[in-house]
Design a protein around this nucleic acid. Structure first.
Lengths: 253, 253
DNA sequence: GAAGCATGGTGCAATTATAGCACCAATTTG
DNA sequence: CAAATTGGTGCTATAATTGCACCATGCTTC
């Protein structure tokens, strides 16, 4: 996974881009440098490069904002790329159980929803209902986390609490069960007894589909089967029929 | 606009990222290198770096696809960032004239829609109806192009036809009028007499809002005023009250 | 199935682009 | 009006990148 010669400039540049994307207000180089732990001159040059590409633009006081090219990239990536496009149809077919249907990806220790349809909601409406949710409390999150190694999980949560679990070890136990079972179970809300069932898309997982609502143990097998079919359909459509290998064979000398 | 020390790695990396975003099927390093005119080894390392960041992922035959981090970035940028969020409310208020309401940004010589509401369509539905349209045939496109220099326009269209115009010079004449008038007029469809009126957001323009439909000369002033108000409102909300200067003063030694 | 070709990936040494200090010019704060 | 902070740039040591040559694998074509 780690490249032989990673391009640090690109790594930092994308970190700046991401920081820019989530910034609420115009941000200056030095401020962003402090946020990201990168030297200010470097940040300034990266920001200026991004501005030149249209990925950022500048206010009158020379601070930076996301630029038009960023919106183009986003729109193209989100709606033009395979995942969302090929997921729409399988996801729409899940809208038959009076449950919430969701698809999301993992971002750090959070789930980022790409599709989130409450019962009866149309597919078009379900797009763009974006939000972040702690991965450890979500069927989507747990099912994606389960495809990672214990070491990666420990790294991810090192130094911070695991929402919904006592500690990382408790999460790892749950992930081991998830791995064996092939699908994830999360109690999303104790009070309303809202349960979330997640099935990963792809292997290693890069996304996940889930039902959530007042799910009983009796209904679970049917729901899981349905989710699994949808996950397979999405994976097939998104990769153009070419499945991912479980572990792409590394080629080393 | 051109940085003193532009970061070429970031420029190429984002070119690769963009190419990846619009790729229909899994793409290999060499193929992408040929497409972008970048040496294959370099592309391979950029792709591997992107894969390490989760921006790309690999199929079993080691070709590359957009990765989960890309969808996160897109979702955050598109819905989390200022532009779309602050535009939703002003755009929804434009839905009173039985005309199509749109907002878009310029991408190369095309308009990329971020919002596209046919008469009566709800704001939520209007998001994500993304498509590309020749900039020279659209009120949005013309109004954004008008904020660029003649030289930039010539560069943009060098060696390719200008949709809807005889040649670049004819377009430049039209853009000069647009500049003086402060808003753009485009005959989007001769047969149905569909007209598109566009008003730029920001200065220099980074987006534009437009009405389109069977617009008569009598109605035009009212529509233009309404668009201008919306554009101002979006600009104010997106920049957090801090307006962009018409020309950010360059500071050179 | 051998031969040819194309592909993803890596090692290595030359070199080139970058890092960051010191500094400038604005702008804001006290 | 001084002090502090910020965006931005020049300059050079230096560290990161480039791209050739090459390997291993997979896919056609004989």
């Amino acid at each position: 996974m780690l490249p032989s010669q990673p391009n640090q400039a690109l790594v930092d540049g994308l970190a700046v881009l991401q920081a820019l994307a989530v910034s609420e207000r115009p941000t200056g180089s030095r401020e962003m440098g402090r946020m990201l732990g990168i030297e200010a001159t470097r940040v300034n040059r990266l920001l200026r490069t991004l501005a030149h590409l249209g990925m950022a633009r500048q206010t009158a006081d020379r601070k930076y904002l996301p630029g038009p090219a960023m919106h183009v990239l986003s729109a193209q990536s989100l709606f033009g790329s395979g995942l969302v496009r090929s997921a729409m149809e399988p996801l729409a077919r899940l809208n038959v159980y009076n449950l919430t249907v969701a698809m999301g990806v993992l971002w750090r220790d959070q789930v980022c929803y790409l599709y989130h349809a409450t019962p009866g909601m149309s597919g078009a409406d379900a797009l763009g209902r974006v939000g972040l949710y702690p991965a450890s409390r979500s069927g989507i999150g747990l099912s994606i986390l389960a495809s990672q190694t214990d070491e990666a999980i420990r790294d991810l949560y090192r130094g911070r609490p695991v929402d919904g679990f006592e500690n990382v070890d408790a999460l790892l136990v749950s992930l081991r069960e998830t791995r064996e079972r092939g699908w994830a179970y999360a109690m999303a809300d104790e009070k309303t007894q809202t349960v979330s069932l997640g099935v990963a898309v792809g292997s290693p997982a890069y996304a996940s589909v889930a039902f959530s609502g007042p799910i009983t143990p009796e209904g679970t097998p049917l729901y899981v089967d349905t989710l699994q079919e949808a996950a397979d359909a999405i994976e097939r459509a998104a990769t153009g029929g070419k499945d991912l290998a479980n572990e792409p064979k590394r080629r080393r000398r």
